[in-house]
Design a protein around this nucleic acid. Structure first.
Lengths: 208, 208, 208, 208
DNA sequence: GATGAATGAGCCTTCATTCAT
DNA sequence: TATGAATGAAGGCTCATTCAT
């Protein structure tokens, strides 16, 4: 059974990660990656199909992971009773944001790649994907919790998308700035309060 | 002697703008630009030094312009008496945001370039630059208006930078999404309220 | 020990046939063939030596077959008495051409390979080989039947070769055009009359 | 006015011609051609756009030339009165075939390329193109001269195409075999008689 | 013998920039 | 200064074949 030379796979991933981080997807050179990994360009094709396949191999598990984590968090929350949802939304999101950050800090390089080196790949709209999911769940929550837009509906959808984008971009600034895990936690906590306030300016509870 | 042929300069700018918009800085081809402009590649070098020089020629006036406008707005504001500043801050920023948007919409392509096609040039951190200026003035204003952080100061600076980034990114979403001027106005107004609310959550007036 | 896995040989032949037909010998990819056959490239080398060996394995039996059939037909004919040869040449060749076409239509793909996909292999001159054999027998027949060239002999040989080539190329057009067996029969019959007329223009019977 | 280095163009054409002749279009290497011409591969792109452009540059003038010559010959003939056409068809085609052969022998290498090295280019069906033109004119002539098919019409068109193909392939054998100009003349003359006889077997004059 | 990775060379094409005219 | 070829390097990718397991 012709085995791949041991360690080359990992070497390639490591060197590719580095190259992509430094030069971005487009400008990264497979020749350079292969040379640094001490092998031939063809090794890349054997293992990863092509350039984008190499990028995906690095990044895809993390993308899947974060989406799964994200959905799991949301689903768990949305299974609570409406009353509980309303009562614990802040507490809950604080707690879960920590899991989220843990995941990010467990895969820092991959997130850096997704955020700043993925142009030209199918991951270039990664943040947007996350945003879409979040917006969807936000709508669900608004319904459950009896929120309604404070404004006429005209622009609500796009606006919500916009500020949610801003929220995620804010979270990911933490990655871009190379902040340590501790600071990141504090920051993001602040960011949540910040956005919660903004949110409450536009969307108010329709309670009696 | 041997004057530059009239109109070629403008042709080059126009064609370069188009090419950069479509392909981004890195992937744009000087050959293509020159060919479309009906001249030779060397014409670019004569007029703009090199590829980045060409990009700068398109974008730099707008960058200068927006920075100047921005500073002017801020300076004017900061020349008011503190009492007036405090009283009119919202009204003022609403009004001035319109000038800002007008400027953007008067130079849409250039902003698009700055936002999405400048990677690889010295303008790739354009938003960050704006953010830095804004943050600086925010500090000044906070001092004048007697604001203070609601939190311990440890992370204040970076946090302020972060949310200001989010603010500007939010504003520029308007460009990226190809929103029309009217919608943009409404959006950004909402965005300001949103961020104002967030801001007030953290920075409170030390009045008596 | 370690016997070849049953059926792989046939699979390879089948897939190779398809690949060669579609891409021609040079552009065919052994990787693709092996992959389609559900085996490894090396299986090809074990069974067929190399790329050309694979091509030969497909095509050689048919080449042998057609040559054998061809010679058999000719030999049978030439065993007849001269008088009978002269009397029945047309009738005979009509009848035998049907066997020839049957053989072709029983091995259509292989003939297609020989005609249009063999460049780069030792079969690239397949038609020429057939032609040479035919010309040889034609000479024999001419002697037996008392034909002689109507022209001075200078160019006779090459000319005969040329028109015989034209004859065979004509026959094989039937394959290239994907004609059905029925039409092919009619065409080739016409072609024979056509060439017979041409032939009789140059080579006339030295009878008294 | 930046001139191309003198002679490089010609060198490239010459070396390309040689490489294409030896290896065929597909297998020819631009690197090799450039190296042999003492220049860089890019010189090829500057002058000829791409690989096929290089091939075209060699071969296109000859293709145009031969088509023009061919049509001119045909048109001239078809401008004669029907009576004259009928009377002189053989004499005329003999004479003009010499012009045709002169043209071929004035551009031997190009014809070799067209016949045996053009696979993969838009010239790969060169003979077929010629054939189509010839067949068209043949139809015209048949009408004028009162020919009609001796057979039912079913297969006439395709059959005519087939034998005309055979005719041209026969003519071009002269190129493939490297025959000298003198022999070629005699051959082709014979070939014409040969085909004329075949033709007359199927298409007979509807005279009274 | 089967596997499939390694080899090592090669493909066409494109680029930003320089340079001779 | 305009021109556009020359430069010189690099790009991703694919190949037939060999070789270690």
């Amino acid at each position: 059974m012709a085995k791949q030379i041991e360690g080359v796979y990992e070497q390639l991933l490591e060197c590719a990660k580095h190259e992509f981080l430094v030069k971005g997807f487009k400008d990264a050179s497979l020749r350079t990656i292969a040379a640094n990994a001490g092998t031939s360009t063809n090794s890349i094709y054997v293992r990863f199909q092509d350039k984008e396949g190499l990028f995906e191999a690095i990044v895809e598990p993390v993308v899947s992971g974060v989406l799964q984590l994200f959905c799991e968090i949301q689903e768990t929350f949305h299974e609570f009773e409406p009353e509980i949802q309303k009562a614990r939304v802040n507490e809950y999101s604080f707690k879960e944001m920590d899991r989220f950050l843990d995941y990010i800090y467990g895969n820092l390089d991959e997130f850096r790649l997704l955020l700043d080196a993925s142009h030209g790949t199918r991951f270039q709209n990664f943040v947007d994907e996350l945003t879409r999911v979040e917006v969807e769940y936000t709508y669900k929550y608004m319904e459950v919790a009896g929120y309604m837009s404070a404004e006429d509906g005209e622009v609500t959808g796009e606006f919500l998308h916009m500020v949610t984008t801003a929220y995620f971009e804010g979270v990911f600034e933490v990655v871009r700035h190379g902040m340590d895990r501790g600071s990141a936690g504090r920051y993001v906590r602040m960011l949540e309060r910040y956005h919660a306030a903004g949110f409450d300016t536009f969307f108010i509870r329709d309670n009696k």
